[in-house]
Structures are given as C-alpha cells and as structure tokens.
Design a protein around this nucleic acid. Structure first.
Lengths: 147, 147
DNA sequence: GTAACTGCAAAACTTTTGCAACCAG
DNA sequence: CTGGTTGCAAAAGTTTTGCAGTTAC
C-alpha cells in the first residue's frame, strides 16, 4: 500500500500554520476548505455552497464536516457569521468591521463599508445592566427596482 | 349551550374591521391572534411563542395556522419580520422605522430608536443597477458583560 | 498509540404544504 | 351554498449529533 495522502504544497503549509495558530489540527478537509475560503478575495459562503464548491474541486468532504468546519472557523475567529435571512447561515471571510448589502431575490451578499460611528451608536443605546454590546450589524436590503 | 361560537366583543369587532381592511377574512383564529398581538404594547413574537400563548389562553389554533397567520399579517403590513438569528423568525408588532437590540443568550428582542439618517445611508451605498433599497436593518447584539 | 477528526445516517428543528373538513358571508 | 380557512400530518429544508472508523502527530 502506497501513501495516498496528497503532497503538502507551500500554500497548504501556510494554511496549516494558520490552523495550528487557532488550535485546530490541520486535517486534509480543513486545509482544503481553508484553501477555498482564504486563498483569494473576501468571500461569502453558505455550508451548501462551500460543499458544492469543494466537491466540484475534487475535495472529498461531507456536508456535515463542512458545517462543523465553518462553525469551528467561526469560533476561531477566522470567519464571521452574517445574519440576513432566517433559515440560512452565511459566513464571511472578511472579519474586519464592515456591513452588508443583501439581495433578497438572489440571496447574494456584498460587503459595504459604512462610516457608521459605532462608538457613538453604542453610547446612544441603553444597554441593560450586566450586558455589553457584542456587535452591531447593519444590513441594507435590496430588491428589484419598480417593485 | 348550543352555539359554541364566542360572543364578539367590541374589541374583537375593532379587530375584525382591521382584518377586513387589509383583505383578510376575520376568522376566529385570526381574531384571537390579532387580539393577543395588538391589544397592548408593541410585541416581539415567534410562531412558537405565539402558539404557546394562544394555547395557554384557551385559543384553539394549530401551529401551522399560527405560521400562516403571521405571514399573512406580515404581507398585509400589520407585522414586520425581524431578522436577528438564522434559524428562527421573529415578528414585531411595531411597523414604524426603528431598530433592534438582540440578546444572544436569551433570544429576547427590544426595540431601539436610533437616530440614523437612513437617507444619508442610502446615498452612501452603491446600489446596483436595477435594484433599490427595500430596507435598512440595524441589530445591536448583546451578551453577558465580562464574556 | 491515542486523541482528534471525519463520514454517514439519523435526529432535531423550524417552516411550508396538501388535502379533507369546516366556517364566514 | 361556496370559496376562503383551518387542522393535521406529512414533507421539505437546514443544521446538529452519535458513533464507528480514520488520521494526525
């Protein structure tokens, strides 16, 4: 029996260090998904879309593992969850402060930078005792014009 | 007692006119749910919570009808959907422009009035051709402080 | 070698739908 | 009457979980 494990390329190795840095063992599946997610521009994915993409690229992974991996990446701070629709979870590879445009018809998400003074906003909000603001999300919803 | 239909009170009658005004036949279930939703302060409910409340008040209604009714009320403009969590739909009886505080631990929603200039915001956003902004939602997320 | 991870299928949830029975007008 | 509504159960869609087998180290 020969070793069927794929050769680790330099890029995958960089991925491995990133995963180790956040306490995740760099397994084949995690490396492959991280490669799809983080090797180019910022992206917005759902578990389903990432699963299809992985499969199309010949990555052998199950949908359950994609779900688990997305949540692990989220918990590790590698991804942000974007909540624009009740019934589907979106994940954003851009973790810096920003907001979203959401096309309600196509389900497509776009990043948008809004110069909202979050500090000012926080001061305006009457935060209940024992609570703190963990985030402020702004969603601009889009529809077909003339509708 | 022969006729088991509940007597229509003045309040319920007002409800009936409201329902008729938006094109919905004022059935017993819709009147009862509308009574729970609109007779007091502004409220935030889920299908499940409203179903339990109705049942506790002796209203005979099925969960499916609660879902359908909430959606009909939403389509009629009597309710607004609030999207704060992927996996659960919330409905808000306050339909005027306002935003929300969402306690991620308890799932509780609170209205918050933010003096956000939505017009200004709209102008900052680069809206794709053929699209218009259908809404801007701001969610301030809360967590236990010291966490 | 061993604990962490994966895959699969099943379960858990939320929400929608098909259809026979029921009810408002 | 008659079409709009409802209830129930079943289906559909998304996400989580249990567990046997595999993999990273």
């Amino acid at each position: 029996m020969t070793d069927t494990r794929p050769t680790i390329t330099a890029q995958e190795d960089r991925g491995a260090s990133h995963l180790r840095a956040v306490g995740l063992r760099p397994t084949q599946q995690r490396l492959a998904l991280a490669g799809l997610l983080f090797s180019g521009e910022d992206r917005h994915v759902t578990a389903e879309s990432l699963y299809e993409e992985a499969t199309a690229h010949g990555v052998k992974v199950s949908l359950a593992t994609v779900y688990n991996t997305l949540n692990q990446f989220k918990d590790a701070g590698l991804l942000r969850e974007v909540i624009v629709h009740s019934g589907k979870s979106y994940y954003d590879t851009k973790t810096e402060a920003h907001h979203h445009l959401y096309d309600e018809e196509s389900g497509r998400i776009q990043d948008v930078h809004l110069e909202v003074d979050e500090e000012e906003l926080r001061q305006k909000v009457d935060v209940p005792a024992g609570k703190r603001i963990s985030g402020v999300d702004i969603v601009v919803r889009l529809r077909q014009s003339g509708n």
